[in-house]
Each structure stands twice: as structure tokens, then as C-alpha cells.
Design a protein around this nucleic acid. Sequence first.
DNA 1: TTGAAAGCGCTAACAT
DNA 2: ATGTTAGCGCTTTCAA
Lengths: 338, 338
Amino acid sequence: MVTRERPTLEAVARRAGVSRATVSRVVNGSTTVAASIRDAVNQAVEELGYVPNQAARSLVTQRTESIALILPETASRVFSDDMFFPAVIRGVSTELEAADKQLVLMMAGSAASHDRVERYAMAGHVDGVMFASMHGADPLPGKLARLGIPVVCSGRPMSPAGNTVPYVDVDHFGGVAAAVRHLVGAGRRRIATIAGPQDMIAGVDRLAGYRAVLTEAGLPEHVTTGDFTRESGEQAMQRLLTEDPELDAVFVASDLMAHGALQALRERGRRVPLDVAVIGFDDFEIARYSDPPLTTVRQPIVDMGRTMAKLMLTLVDDPTEVAAPVVLPTELVLRDSA
Amino acid sequence: MVTRERPTLEAVARRAGVSRATVSRVVNGSTTVAASIRDAVNQAVEELGYVPNQAARSLVTQRTESIALILPETASRVFSDDMFFPAVIRGVSTELEAADKQLVLMMAGSAASHDRVERYAMAGHVDGVMFASMHGADPLPGKLARLGIPVVCSGRPMSPAGNTVPYVDVDHFGGVAAAVRHLVGAGRRRIATIAGPQDMIAGVDRLAGYRAVLTEAGLPEHVTTGDFTRESGEQAMQRLLTEDPELDAVFVASDLMAHGALQALRERGRRVPLDVAVIGFDDFEIARYSDPPLTTVRQPIVDMGRTMAKLMLTLVDDPTEVAAPVVLPTELVLRDSA
DNA sequence: TTGAAAGCGCTAACAT
DNA sequence: ATGTTAGCGCTTTCAA
């Protein structure tokens, strides 16, 4: 298995009896080339199996035709049973595929990998950077943006300087409010919540929705927190039941946590929804397959990914473009659990 | 937000009062640089926020420090509820991360994207290419290998020329054989199977394991096929029950299909394992959470990914290396369903 | 319409 | 130990 030399523009030019410039024009689809010459060049390209060297091309065009999606999470987390990441990636990759851009997926769950990602982006490896699942007030988006690299976030950034970076998010607050109002409307009076991590905007906004409605209804709050995993949901539910054995409803900030909560309720002998009503958030497949099927808040994550990618593509085309934030609607989906 | 010019080696050199070569040496950690000069250079790098241009670097080194993982599947499939892909990716990315290589994840579910991936690899965008979840006799691995690009496959290639490309796989046959023997040993006599797609080596090998044991035991075969999705498992189980209402066991070639099968069995009023024993394959989390928990064959997919990545790293370091195939062991995990 | 030539930013001989 | 220099393969003026 010898590393056969890959043919260069030069080789194609010689074979076709033209200059490098002409070959370059043909390869890049310039219209100002005579048909006969174009055919000759194409034939030489074919015969030699020529493929342009991307490094050389990027060096002069300053374009790589690829775009990064950065997930500040470990690979184990991204590829766990949390269907959030798959959905975002699916949306993003659909849109980039259509634009013939290469998606470069980067996990940055550790400080070291966070650095690597930063250098990677700054080294000009990609034409733009998208972020999803951000924690805390990550300075990286702002930093890259200030360097002139197009940046889009999915999820409203928590950083104070967040307003400098365009973002796409879903209406967490509205969705949760609808869910909790549903519980109130059904006569539930001891409504607890398992909130998401408070270093993420999704966790914060969903908790805010819960609080707003309970305040409005004059009902007491009962808050505990998980980290969006099934296990954390199960444990959180156990805590809630211990603290208030009489609770009659719980809004859980993710379907996966809700699944864990259902498990805990079952173990404690509570019937759902008879004794305790449960509402989740996400509308992932697990919501339909759980027992009982889960009433939940549908959020259009795939769409969010697509929208984010589209935004990115316009920014890459014209970096002076000023992109406004986009917020996508959410919707309560009624099933058996509440 | 202006595209601020990024500083070059030249700029750093001027600022530090040295030559470009010296800066290059410092940046690349050469030891033959005087400490005082090294410090001066590092300071200039710091002040200017210099980051090497990867395109320029690759152009001369012929290295990109990134490695592709190609999944000949649509993004929807890769990011569905099939935990195979996440597991592979997790293993691969763990290993590449440790080696400070960038993983470039590419989905190639359509003919068009398959082409794009081919061009991408041939354009020298990556130092090596790994394949997983291959269908049929894909010529791409062989083609890239012949061009001198390091290639490793996860899953024994089905192509006749497959022996030219190193691969890592798990012992499908052995695992399935253990599973079906368990059924036979438990007194089951009408043992059906829901096989995987027959254009994939995992589908073929697992079916072979089933057939071998039934032949050995002198029992009749009853085969139907799915595509590894839950839905296909559910439908396949319905077919089996219609064709043989008396069947008392079924080996299902994936946990996800087994989950669908359990659903179908429930709908048809069969008790598991009392009426029908079920064994799956994968040992994904769903096997523990299904009702009843699923006896299944554990395959070390994360390890397979890691092993594949390690192999790739040695090949990238020394392309003349001849890598032998690796086959990892599988293991029957007993739970309630059989 | 085509070709000649000047780089893009970097590394790696080779000189000193 | 440091500098000089010659490209890596490509695109893109500028001339012809």
C-alpha cells in the first residue's frame, strides 16, 4: 500500500496542454472557457483522478467550506440516551448538507478540549462556529465573534455580552406555563417541579415558567433540581416524595428526567395520573413509550438546528449581516400522565 | 464586527525581532532555541494572539491532524434511538481526543453524500478514514486505501477485496450461538429469529449463528428479517406469530428490534418468558428498562470504537504498518426475558 | 479566451 | 543556534 502521489493542477494542465490557470477555471466552473478546452481539461481530470487539494485552496481563498458545531459536553453525554443532541445535529446537518458544507462536530466537555476547540476555530479550520447546549456564561462565542468568525448559538447565551451573538432558541417559558396551567386547571394544588440544571438557559427559563404560573395561581412552590438525566430525575422524585408525600403533580423539565420520575413514583406506589400527575418537556419518543405515555411540552429542536444552520450560512456569505435572535414556539402535548 | 486580520508568523517574527523560521521552531516546540529568544517569541505570540494557519501548515506537512469517521447512513438514522452509533462514536472520540486529533464525523446516507465524502477524503482533508455500519460491498474503503489513505473499518467488510483493509469487529457468531443454545437448553423447541438486514455483516453473521445452533440441535428454522429499528422488530414479530402461533422463543438480532417484538407479543397476549422467551443483541440500556428486562448478548461497541481508533493512529504514524483484523468477544447477559 | 506570475502562510533543508 | 530560501498546490490579478 504505497502512498501514490496525488495529481496536482500542474499535472492536469500538462496533460491537457493548457495552463494551470485554465485548469483552475474549469475545475471551479468558470464560464469563460472554450468548450473544447473545457472538455479536454475535464478528460485529463478524469484520467488522472484529480481532486483539488483543500489546504492549498483554503490558503488562498480563506474558505474551508466546513462549519463547526460545538457541544460543550463530553462525548458520553452527547451520545447518551438524551435525544436533545441527536435532534440538534440532525437539523444542522440537514441544512448544511443541502448547502454542500461539511459539518465538523466537536465535543468540548473538558477544559482541555474546550481549549482545543478554541484553537481549532482560530486556526481557520472552519468558516463558522455554532454552539449548542451551553453552560454558564461561556466566553468562547463572544471571543470568536470578536475575531470576526461567524458565530451562532442555539439557546440564548447566559453571558451578559450574549447580545452580541445571534441565537436561536425555543419558547421554554411559554411551554412550561401552558403545562403548569394545565395542572392547575385540572385541580392540582400541590404542584412540585424537577428543574433542569441552573447553569443552562433551558434549566433557568423552564423554572421561571413554573414559578410564574404558581405565583399567578397563588399556589406554593416545591422545587428540586436534576441534571436532565434519567437517574437525576428518579432521585429528584424520591426527594420530592419524601419532602411532601401529599404532592399531587409534578412538572419535570425534561422527558428523560420524567421517565426516571415515573419509575420513582411507581416504586413508591403512586398511580399516575390518579395520585400524581406528571408532565415532561421535550416530546421525545420516550414520552410515547413510557408507562403511562407522558404529557409533555413539544419543542422543535430539529427546527432549531435547521434555523441555526441557515443563519450561519447567511453569516458566512455575508459577515456584515446583523442577525436577529429567533425564538421558536413550543406546544403542550396531552397524553395519559396528566 | 469586522474581520480583524489574523496575525501571521511574519508578524510575530517582526515583533520578536527574529526570523520566521525561529518563530516556527518555537511554535512547534523545537528544543534548539535559546531560552531568551523562546520567551521573546512566546510573548509576541501572546500579545498578538497568534494561532498558526492550519491550511498553510497542512500544505507543507501534508498532515491535517484530523481523522474522519464515515457512517454510510442518514443523519436521522445515526441520531435515532439506535444506540449503536453513539457507542462507536464515543469509543472513537475518547481515543482520538487522547491523541489530540480532531474527529470529523461524516454521514453518507445518500449517493450524493457518499460522493462528497469520497472527494473530501481525497482532497486531503483528513489523515485517515474510519468506516462503521457499512452496507453491502462498499468499494470506498478499498479505493481510499489504494490511494494510500489509512483506512480502518469497524465490522468485517463484505467486499471480496475486503481483506485488504484492516478491521475491528465483535464475535457476532459466538454471542448468538450462546444465546440460542441457552434457549435450546431451556427446553424451547420452536425458536424463531428476527434477523438483521442481510446487506450488513452484523445481520449476516448473527443469522449464521442462529442457523448453526438450530442445525446442530436438529430444530427447525423460522427466519424473518428487520432493519434493526424498533418498528421493524414489532412488525417482524407479528409476522412470526401469524406464521407460527405456537412458537416458544425468538432470538432478535438487536435490542431495539427486541423491544418492538416485546410490544407485539404483549399485544398478541403472549407472556414473556412464560409463553415466549426473547433474547436480544447489544445490551443497550433499553434492555434493562424494557418489560421484562431483556436477556441479551453484550457486545463491546465502545471498545470496538476505541480499538479502531487506536489502529488508525498507528497507521497514520506509519502507513507501511500491516494491521491484522481484531475480533472482540461477546457475552450472553441473562435477565428475565429468557 | 488564455497564460504568466505573484502570492496565500507555513515548514524544512541548507547555510552560516 | 539562527537565518535564508525554496517550495507545498492553488487562485487570481494582470497582460496579451
